[in-house]
Every structure is written in C-alpha cells, then in structure tokens.
Nucleic acid binder design. Structure first.
Lengths: 170, 170
DNA sequence: TAACGCATGTAATACGTTACATGATTCT
DNA sequence: AGAATCATGTAACGTATTACATGCGTTA
C-alpha cells in the first residue's frame, strides 16, 4: 500500500487540500502516480486518525488543508529507506510497445505513429514546464525522473522514429 | 482491463501453458507486466470460453497448452490499434526517486545508492540476456522497450550517480 | 518412499475505478 | 438567478494480491 506514502510525500512537499492533491495527481504527476479523489479523501482521513497528518486550516467551501506531522515524516523516511521497492509493476506503454511487433508493418506503423505523436506532445509540454520553472528560479533535481515516468527520453523518441522507418522497408 | 490483452499478446508470441505464462510474467517481462497465477488461470478459462484462445495440447500433470485463435488475434489488433492507451499509471520507482529529495543528504545518499545498485544489476542482467539472444541469432527490435520498462537507461544511471555526488557537497 | 518442483485451481481480503450524491462559492 | 467550478464524501463494482488447497511426475 503506497498510495498512503504518495499522499504523505506530497504533503511533505507542501501542505494542501485533498482537492489540490487530486489535481496534482491528475496533472504534473500523472505519469508517476495517479489517484482519484475517492481514494484520496478517505486516505487523508485515515492518516489524520493515525496521527501522520493533521488539519492545519479550514477554509471556504468546507475545505481542509492537511499537513504532515513529525510522525508522518518519520513514516515517510522509514518507507523510503527501509522498505523494499515494489519493482514488479505494470506499464501499459511498455506492454503495447512490445506487442506492437505482433502487427503487420502497415498496422504497426499506424500504431507507432500515434505513440510518437503522444510522446512528442508530452516532451513539448514538459519542456514548457521546465522553462517556466527555470524562469521562476526553481531548480529541481528530480525533473529527469518525471521525464523517465512520462517516457519522454530523447533516446526513446529516436527509437520510435527508427521503428517507424523500419516498417517502410519490410 | 488489459491483463486479458497481456495474456492474449503473450499467447500470440508463442502458445504456452498458464504455468509458463506465469513464469514469463515473473521473469523477463516482470518490469513491463506482472501477474500471478491466480489471475492467469481464470483469465485463460475466460478467453477459451469466449473463443479468443483454445487448448491445443494436454500434457503431463494436467497441463494445458493454450493458443490464440483468429478471433483472439483480431481482438489483440483491435486493442492495439483502436483503444486509447491508459497512460496514467503508477510507477513506484518514479515516486520514490521524486520523494527521495525530501530526505536529508546522508539519508538520500543511502537511498540513492541502493537504487543505483539495483539499476546496475538490472542493466548487467539485461546485457547478458541481449548477448545470449544475439548469440542465438534472435534479434528483437523491442528490446529497448524492456530497458525502458526496467528503467535501466544509461542516462538514468548517470543521473543517479550525479545525484549521489551532489549529496556529498550539500 | 519422501521430498521437490510442476501445474492448476479457489477463497478471502485489499485495493482501485466509476458512478452517485451533495453543498458552497464565484462569475456572468 | 443560473451556470460553472470548487470541494468533499459514499456506494457499487471490478481487479489484484495473498493465502489456502490439491494432485501429478521426477529424482535422490
């Protein structure tokens, strides 16, 4: 169960409401982690009940801002340092890119072109975000990690292009 | 639901038993897709009931070898070409590499060193597999995909090394 | 013949997604 | 006042993991 640690970790970056967490998981973090509000709100309630997070502010529209407690930071550290990462996770993109070789060249090209389109759009989006963060003076050593998660590695774009070319001479 | 298509896809590569599929999902394919036998056997039964796969051989120890049918190949093609990939998937490695920046430099170095060790071992393992496949004369354009799934890209290894160095001067 | 690995299956529980449901505030 | 968005919550359903359970075939 690491939805708990994803939430705890995000709260340790900055205190926020369940709604803001949901948006975060839906947008900038979407390729690394995704969770819907119906999971997030109950998890926040559980974290509070167990003393790992606390409500630090109640605002408009019944909104509650949560912050991580010392016990929560301890738990996050314990998870990061002492638990074995679960590396056997599903990656639909990798599965599709693997299985696309079962298609005949024309169909494969069509499928790969769609992937290339998506990956290039993701790369452009991430470049824009990076430039914006740089302009704001925020450097974050972790940005390549998000590229990794979003599979916008330049080598992968090159690989997709090569595979598309290859379908034309088969 | 794409466990179904993972199974169908693997059967389209080569006919095999549920046990062999389980091993495949546990070993060479583990970073792209994982599933345990308790999911695989019922799914094979459902695929057979729906005419997407069929039992082509019954061997020792009650074993059943399944093969994909024409309808199954159609369905696989439909999935690959017509359905929108689910790109909002969880990646515990990316989450951890992102959250590790919440740790102080010493703890962070320890955590990153463990990751580097794992990634280097995975890279070595994959190199060995590649050499073996090359020796057998099997080329597979999809191998970089498995690297992607296993997150053993050389750029990532370099990034981990850089981050470890950075903790030493903080 | 006992132990081990092959091979399959089901049951209980945990987790995740989708759909349903409601109220508060802001904007037009 | 009505529409849109903010903000939270629960219920129903589907999927995944873990634990339980069994039998066949080979090897020591």
């Amino acid at each position: 169960m690491s939805l708990r640690h994803a939430v705890l970790g995000m709260l340790s970056v900055t205190s926020c409401t369940g709604y803001e967490l949901t948006q975060w998981f839906d947008s900038s973090l979407q390729h690394a982690w995704h969770a819907s509000h119906s999971q997030i709100y109950p998890e926040l309630a559980r974290l509070e009940a167990e003393g790992l997070a606390e409500v630090v502010e109640e605002g408009a529209r019944r909104s509650k801002t949560y912050a991580v407690t010392d016990a929560g930071r301890e738990e996050l550290k314990r998870w990061l340092m002492e638990t074995e990462p679960n590396r056997a996770q599903r990656n639909e993109t990798a599965l599709r890119w693997f299985l696309v070789f079962r298609l005949d060249p024309d169909d494969r090209r069509a499928a790969l072109e769609r992937e290339l389109e998506f990956v290039e759009a993701a790369a452009a989006q991430r470049r824009a975000l990076t430039e914006q963060l740089d302009a704001e003076g925020k450097t974050g050593g972790f940005r390549p990690v998000l590229d990794l998660a979003a599979r916008v590695d330049p080598a992968m774009i090159g690989w997709l292009r090569d595979q598309i070319e290859a379908t034309k001479t088969e």
